[in-house]
Design a protein around this nucleic acid. Structure first.
Ligand SMILES: [Zn+2]
Ligand SMILES: [Zn+2]
Ligand SMILES: [Zn+2]
Ligand SMILES: [Zn+2]
Lengths: 157, 157
DNA sequence: TTTTAATTTGATAAAAATTCGCAAAAAAAT
DNA sequence: ATTTTTTTGCGAATTTTTATCAAATTAAAA
């Protein structure tokens, strides 16, 4: 984690920015909650626990900056808030998401399933692909099993 | 177009809703601007030209309703507004988008490029896919050509 | 056709999310 | 030590979306 922050510190310096305590606290939160998909407000509340004097605007600014530098990705799952997602280490594409319509859980697919599709898009549509967003909406494994169980239960009753 | 609206009218009635003049005006705008990706505000302004007495809230409600019924899809390209996209006739999946990072244009890919990918997701992740959102960010054909020309120009200068 | 009930609407207020403006603080450069 | 640049915190302002509610419209019942 220290290592990861240092790496980012370098990237910031390379672009003429500094790693202020506020930025470091924000990064720490993002790293600690890497599995989650936090909104700016949620990041703010978590950062406040470490650095109570921080302002919401600073969090927004930091998240913007990190997005600019490609350290985090901004994504919107359809509930009017932007969520921020740290890029996986050593992975250069934005990973995919599985959003469960029943329980709201968000699962991640790290491996790139779009390599072939992108090739087609580049060739057939003459579009130079730089980035992608792929989200599947459906029913997660848990909820499928739950539905199965409750259906059985109804049959017994 | 009349035909298309009548079809939707039936779908509305099937769910116990009526096709009010306001809803029809909204639908007409969506049909007339099928290529575009309008925000609620933009739809509102266009509908107002036909039905000046309509209120913004009604447009929001209508778009919500149409989304609910699967007649339009709601999507967010990352600029804080939701956009509404009429489903293509006879196509049961949400089409894909190519967003140009230079000029902001949005191109559509109607054919489903995700059939294989979805099969993998269903099998390997045990996730029942109901819907998807796929957006590529990159450089459109036009902007690629423009860049090429201006580069040549620089070389000559 | 009148009466009644249910749905839909427009206007406005309220809420939620994000950005802006600016003076103060911190850091870097001179 | 002084000046310049960057960053911050705060509150106000903006933008987008939702909620409220009485009035209007439409459908159903009598
Ligand atoms: Zn993610
Ligand atoms: Zn689930
Ligand atoms: Zn579209
Ligand atoms: Zn372009």
């Amino acid at each position: 984690m220290r290592q990861r922050i240092n790496q980012i510190k370098k990237e910031l310096h390379a672009q003429g920015y500094k790693l202020t305590p506020q930025r470091e606290a924000t990064l720490t939160v993002l790293l600690e909650r890497e599995e989650d998909h936090l909104s700016a407000e949620e990041v703010f509340l978590l950062v406040k626990e470490k650095a109570p004097e921080i302002g919401l605007a600073t969090v927004y600014r930091t998240l913007d900056l990190l997005t600019e530098l490609g350290i985090v990705d901004k994504i919107n799952f359809g509930d009017g808030v932007a969520r921020y997602d740290l890029r996986k280490e050593g992975i250069d594409h934005f990973h995919h998401h599985l959003v469960c319509m029943e329980c709201g859980s968000v699962e991640e697919i790290i491996e790139d399933l779009l390599v072939d599709v992108e090739k087609i898009v580049e060739e057939k549509w003459q579009f130079r692909v730089k980035d992608h967003r792929l989200t599947f909406h459906g029913v997660c494994k848990n909820c499928q099993e739950a539905a199965l169980k409750s259906r059985k239960k109804v049959k017994i009753d």
